[in-house]
């Protein structure tokens, strides 16, 4: 029983961080060079068995990747692509792992079979969060998006594959949210050390200090539970569903609470478009609300067997 990353997992995290640092700036739109680097590094097939064309790690390493993606609020269809790489359809799988078929996230919109799609590409694929199938998108029309770095569209979709594991989806979304919770905690701590008022760093005041401590605790709780849930899912333990739902609940709350408090800790600068603090708020709000959101996870968690 051990809940700290192994040396090999530490190396994976380091490598992901260095790729993200080289190709991504928070607040910038999705970049092709990051996408290509991600494909070249094997991110899209990280948890897919080698026999199926993947790197051969597991959902645990995918969760570590998701946490890193959340930490820098990466734009683009990373999550859907990592999840869709587990499809049984070999042709789709190959192009998804290779990065040539980016996969958006989608869910039902209205009663007429329409879809709401996040990070769609025209004519591309999407993973439906409500029935866990893959669809090909047609007739995209864009909507103003709460998170302008996530393309929000209405669309139709035609099923092309089914049978993806919703628990993997929940763990990886929780991973991104835990990453957001941790990143904004660090952002507040760092601002608390740098920003001076009344002649001292504002982080010496208990009002700020205590909020930072609470943020750190929430981030630690969310991250650790995501680790635990990913391990339980990998090992197919009898309580895996419970731990996945617990991770989804705790990470969604941690991300929203921390991201919102982070704005307050930054004062006026936190309210500007230029500062990245709001990016985490909107990203957290979108990811905590997709597929029935926090409320559905709370209901499912109460129903899960322990």
């Amino acid at each position: 029983m051990d809940l700290l990353p192994t040396p090999e997992q530490e190396e994976i995290i380091e490598s992901i961080r260095s790729v993200l640092a080289d190709h991504h700036t928070i607040g910038e739109p999705a970049s092709d060079t990051l996408w290509q680097a991600a494909a070249a590094q094997g991110w899209f097939g990280l948890g897919v068995p080698e026999a199926s064309g993947g790197v051969g790690y597991s959902v645990v390493e995918e969760a570590l990747l998701a946490i890193e993606l959340g930490r820098v609020a990466v734009p683009g269809p990373f999550l859907g692509t990592i999840l869709a790489a587990h499809t049984a359809d070999a042709t789709i799988r190959e192009s998804v792992i290779g990065g040539t078929s980016p996969v958006a996230l989608a869910e039902a919109e209205g009663d007429e079979g329409g879809l709401r799609v996040f990070d769609a590409t025209d004519g591309g694929l999407a993973l439906r969060l409500d029935d866990h199938s893959l669809v090909r998108l047609t007739g995209l029309s864009d909507e103003p998006s709460l998170d302008p770095l996530i393309r929000l569209s209405l669309s139709s979709g035609e099923a092309v594959a089914s049978g993806l594991d919703p628990r993997r989806t929940s763990v990886l979304i929780a991973g991104v949210l835990a990453g957001i919770a941790a990143a904004v905690a660090e952002q507040s701590v760092s601002y608390g050390k740098d920003r001076e008022q009344f002649g001292v760093p504002i982080g010496s005041f208990q009002a700020i200090k205590h909020r930072c401590a609470d943020m750190a605790v929430r981030a630690e709780a969310a991250t650790t539970q995501v680790h635990y849930a990913a391990l339980a899912l990998r090992d197919a333990t009898t309580d895996a569903d419970f731990h996945v739902e617990a991770a989804a609940v705790i990470a969604a709350r941690a991300a929203i609470d921390n991201a919102e408090i982070n704005i307050q800790n930054h004062g006026g600068i936190g309210f500007t478009l230029e500062h990245s603090a709001h990016r985490y708020v909107t990203r957290a709000r979108v990811l905590a609300a997709v597929a029935g959101g926090l409320r559905r996870h709370q209901v499912d968690l109460l129903a899960a067997n322990l």
Binding site: A222, Q225, Y228, A247, L301
Partner: peptide, 9 residues
Amino acid sequence: ANCRAEVAA
């Protein structure tokens, strides 16, 4: 549900 998640964490 929140308390159940929190004791797990």
